[in-house]
């Protein structure tokens, strides 16, 4: 019996199909350890070898890695939510109720999306804090710090745009508080400094055409805002953030791996 299984295994592993997918054996050899990482597109984000120092949890807190992990969780759960949610003021709130009470695993999917988003915000702040504390933004990693700051901003915006989507009292008023700030932009907001002058001279910075209405698609948070935030939340910001994350991870490697004492 054991013999037969072995023979079967050998046949499978030697077949053209198998060999076309897996380019190397599984035996634990130094060569295979490197191929494991180098021949896998996802694992290839890693270097094939790294300093032991970079592994210590006490050093990185795994904060950057966990930020990315929680991002992935929101992507997966977010796609599931998109099957049931319509970004239209008449439907959105009812879709949330339907999702929570009628869809199998709807509630836990929503919870995981929500809490993973919060966890991502917490982790990205912790990650920035640890990168600062270890001085890891110093040469040669200056640019990656800048990419990081952009990612921090995008993470907050991602969370903020998502906050509106349930279309309940909590979400529209929380977003109103934030979106009202757009109206106060100096020179570009209808209630900001210089607004009267700019409106008189250039015809912009009026309540209908100012930085606030650009954000909320109108003078107040209303149905058009919902669609705008939905597109930003589900497409625009995730795509930009993903691109920047690719750059970020690439640069971690190109800048010599995780920082450490010289």
């Amino acid at each position: 019996m054991k013999e037969k299984l072995r023979a079967l295994q050998e046949t499978i592993v030697q077949s053209d199909v198998w060999k076309s997918i897996f380019r190397h054996g599984y035996a634990d050899t130094p060569r295979n350890r490197i191929l494991m990482v180098a021949s896998n597109v996802f694992l290839h984000l890693h270097p094939s070898k790294l300093r032991r120092h970079g592994l210590t949890l006490r050093y990185t807190w795994c904060a950057g890695g966990l930020t990315f992990f929680f991002f992935l969780v929101t992507v997966v759960t977010g796609i599931l939510l998109m099957f049931y949610y319509r970004p239209v003021a008449e439907y959105a709130y009812n879709d949330m109720k339907y999702l929570q009470f009628d869809i199998p695993f709807g509630m836990i999917t929503r919870n995981m999306h929500r809490w993973a988003a919060h966890a991502m915000v917490i982790m990205v702040m912790l990650h920035m804090f640890r990168v600062f504390m270890t001085g890891s933004y110093k040469p040669p990693r200056e640019f990656n710090w800048i990419v990081g700051v952009l990612l921090l901003t995008l993470t907050l915006l991602l969370s903020f745009t998502g906050y509106l989507l349930p279309w309940d009292q909590l979400s529209i008023w929380a977003v109103t508080v934030g979106a009202n700030m757009g109206k106060a932009t100096p020179g570009l907001g209808s209630q900001g400094p210089f607004s009267e002058q700019i409106a008189a001279w250039f015809g912009i910075a009026t309540p209908r055409y100012d930085a606030g209405s650009l954000l909320t698609a109108g003078t107040v948070v209303a149905a058009p805002t919902l669609l705008r935030f939905y597109v930003l939340h589900c497409i625009f910001i995730p795509v930009v953030a993903s691109l920047l994350m690719i750059v970020h991870f690439w640069r971690v490697r190109k800048d010599g791996g995780i920082s450490g004492p010289m």
């Binding site: 490197i34 890693h46 270097p47 094939s48 790294l50 795994c62 890695g65 966990l66």
Partner: peptide, 18 residues
């Protein structure tokens, strides 16, 4: 260089964290 292979050391740690 005090270096180890990413597979399994780093990948294992990341997997456990995740």
């Amino acid at each position: 260089t005090d270096k180890v292979h990413s597979w399994p050391h780093l990948v294992r740690a990341e997997f456990l964290c995740a």
